[in-house]
């Protein structure tokens, strides 16, 4: 093929490089996490306790980060995150309701119900936030606050009132923890994670074109409504099944896509892959830190991510405000 006279296509080299770097880092911290802890390094502890925990943290981190990419792209909203738009709380509510109905945690059925309730949650938020075909940035977040408050309240009522909700406390759901992760839970979320990632990669290019705005994307041949629904459903799959196992971990889905965009640019295919890896690295790191920092006391992992994430969220709000000049 003849070389193009005009160059300017985004170079894939940076994203390949960053993928390799993140993969190496992930391997290193995984090995470190597997061999450190209060208990000894017997193979039972490593393979039945630490390994499923590390695997779960990696999968949940990747899922949240990719879900963040999808929500930010599909809603053209720089402040979108699964926990901020109500998806995570909706999922937690589903898992708790399922438990109250006698469906064990960390099972595929529990994951399915979490997907269902999370879908309802995002559906409600978007129904509130869209007006004449436009989905407004701030209304999405306000709707997310309301849905989250409602779902969290029902979760706390069920957890408090019912023995069936089991050992998982209110704070387990609101700050998240990998302490109850096991291989069963890991397996329960894998189908949704794989499907969600596959959908994400399949719609990566149309999501790029979303940057033009709905009407110009449509004029360029993108079926805007279909792609948006596919993106939101994939985000729900990637978030809800993780939440059902480990509770709500905020800010990962918000901040990782922004950080990765700074490194490799806004093109969605690369953004999905590199953000997924970065999300895995960050949550394995955060979980290992939460286990070891004040060992033998274990910190809630969601608290660790929020302490780092919330201040960065403020910075983002301020820069988004400056850039867009006000919320429409």
């Amino acid at each position: 093929m003849k070389m193009s006279g005009i160059r300017g296509k985004s170079s894939p080299h940076r994203s390949v490089l960053w993928s390799l770097v993140l993969l190496i880092v992930l391997v290193v911290i995984t090995v470190f996490a597997l061999y450190s802890g209060v208990a000894g390094n017997e193979s039972v502890i490593i393979w039945n306790i630490r390994a499923p925990r590390v695997a779960t943290a990696a999968a949940v981190g990747a899922g949240l980060a990719i879900a963040g990419v999808l929500l930010q792209g599909a809603l053209r909203n720089p402040l979108a995150d699964p926990a901020l738009v109500g998806v995570s709380a909706g999922a937690a509510l589903g898992a708790v309701i399922a438990a109250a109905l006698g469906i064990s945690y960390n099972t595929f059925l529990s994951a399915c119900i979490a997907v269902l309730t999370a879908s309802i949650a995002i559906g409600l938020v978007l129904w509130v936030a869209s007006s004449q075909g436009r989905i407004e940035v701030v209304t999405v977040l306000l709707g997310g606050i309301a849905i989250t408050a409602f779902a969290a309240a029902v979760v706390s009522v069920i957890v408090t009132a019912s023995d069936l909700a089991g050992s998982r406390t209110v704070s387990f759901w609101t700050t998240g923890s990998f302490a109850l992760a096991n291989w069963l839970g890991f397996v329960s979320m894998i189908p949704a994670m794989v499907l969600g990632t596959a959908i994400a990669l399949a719609i990566a290019r149309p999501l790029d074109i979303f940057a033009l705005g709905d009407s110009a994307a449509f004029a360029s041949g993108v079926p805007v409504a279909k792609i948006r629904i596919a993106a939101l459903f994939a985000a729900v799959l990637l978030t809800a099944t993780g939440v059902a196992v480990v509770g709500i971990i905020a800010f990962v889905g918000l901040l990782i896509p922004h950080a990765v965009r700074l490194l490799i640019g806004p093109s969605h295919r690369a953004l999905i892959i590199v953000s997924g890896l970065a999300g895995a690295v960050v949550l394995v790191l955060a979980d290992t830190a939460s286990r070891l920092l004040l060992s033998p006391i274990e910190l809630p992992v969601g608290a660790v991510t929020a302490i780092v994430g919330a201040p960065l969220f403020l910075v983002l709000v301020s820069s988004a405000r400056a850039r867009q000049g006000g919320w429409a």
Partner: peptide, 10 residues
């Protein structure tokens, strides 16, 4: 909409 980060060619 305002578009960020993409090249003219993109």
């Amino acid at each position: 909409a305002q578009t960020y980060g993409f090249s003219v060619y993109d």
